[in-house]
Simulated assay, not measured.
Amino acid sequence: MTTRQTDETAPATRATFGTAIADPAPLGLAAFALTTFVLSAVNAGWVPDTVEPVVFGLALGYGGLAQLLAGMWEFTKGNTFGATAFSSYGAFWLSFWWLTAHLSGYGIPAGDVGKGVGIYLLAWGIFTAYMTVAATRVSMAVLAVFALLTITFVVLALADFNTSDGLTKLGGWLGFLTAVAAWYTSFAGVTSFTFKRPLLPVGARE
């Protein structure tokens, strides 16, 4: 009798696993937005290049670890899109932290550094482009984040390939718009929970 009851309740337990945790998306979006904003401020020339190391701590702790955790929680909730996105961009910021903090110690010829960083950014642009296709089924707000991020990666990649300050500044401005879109989407998620009703439209797909 005890075994039968355990077997009958097991499927229900599996079905509800992960539903008790909070939505990790606002955290992941906020971490991405804030780190992107600070880096974009450097790229756009709003602050001197000498302060770029300020980004490293954010890339490690917030953009990296916080997003990676958000991705793991999305796996728990069964959200393949959110898990793939947050885990990947968390890993992006962790790799960015390592790359930029240690690049000078690799002994790469000065003329080849831009090519290496360019292909790195282009690869992330390709990944973001196909995630943008998937984002069309999530919401208009999320789609805006991914579309803007795709363009940002491509422009910054071209900037590094061509050593173009103008394209770097353009990439900074595009990154700023991406950060604003991500912050908006995060804010919409947080306030929807705390106010128990949507305060901002996100254009969610049915």
Rank of each mutant, 00 (worst) to 15 (best):
T2C: 10
T3R: 14
T3M: 09
T3Y: 12
R4F: 15
T9V: 12
T9A: 14
P11Q: 02
T13W: 08
R14K: 10
R14F: 13
A20S: 10
A22G: 15
D23G: 10
P24W: 04
A25W: 05
G28Q: 01
G28V: 00
L29E: 05
A31D: 05
A31H: 04
F32N: 11
T35E: 08
F37E: 09
F37V: 10
S40A: 15
S40M: 06
V42R: 11
N43M: 08
A44H: 12
G45F: 12
W46I: 11
E52H: 12
V54A: 15
F56D: 09
G57C: 03
L60K: 05
G61W: 05
G63S: 03
G64F: 07
G64S: 11
L65V: 13
A66H: 04
L68T: 12
G71Q: 00
M72E: 08
W73H: 14
E74L: 13
F75W: 15
K77H: 11
G78L: 03
N79G: 10
F81G: 11
G82V: 02
G82Y: 03
A85G: 06
F86Q: 14
G90L: 04
A91V: 14
A91Y: 07
F92M: 08
W93P: 12
W97A: 15
W97H: 13
L103A: 15
L103V: 07
S104R: 04
S104L: 00
G105P: 02
G105V: 00
G107E: 00
A110G: 04
G111P: 02
G111H: 01
D112L: 04
V113I: 11
K115Y: 13
G116Q: 09
V117F: 10
I119Y: 14
L121K: 07
A123V: 14
I126W: 13
I126T: 11
T128A: 15
A129L: 11
M131R: 11
T132N: 06
T136H: 14
R137V: 06
V142K: 07
V145K: 13
A147V: 04
L149E: 07
T150N: 02
I151L: 15
V154S: 11
V154K: 09
A157I: 01
A157E: 05
F161M: 03
T163N: 14
D165H: 10
L167A: 15
T168G: 14
K169R: 15
K169V: 03
G172T: 01
W173C: 05
L174K: 07
L177E: 01
T178F: 11
A179Q: 04
V180G: 10
A182R: 02
Y184P: 03
T185Q: 04
T185S: 14
T185K: 05
F187K: 00
F187H: 06
F187T: 08
V190D: 09
T194V: 08
T194Q: 03
K196L: 08
R197W: 00
P198H: 06
A204I: 01
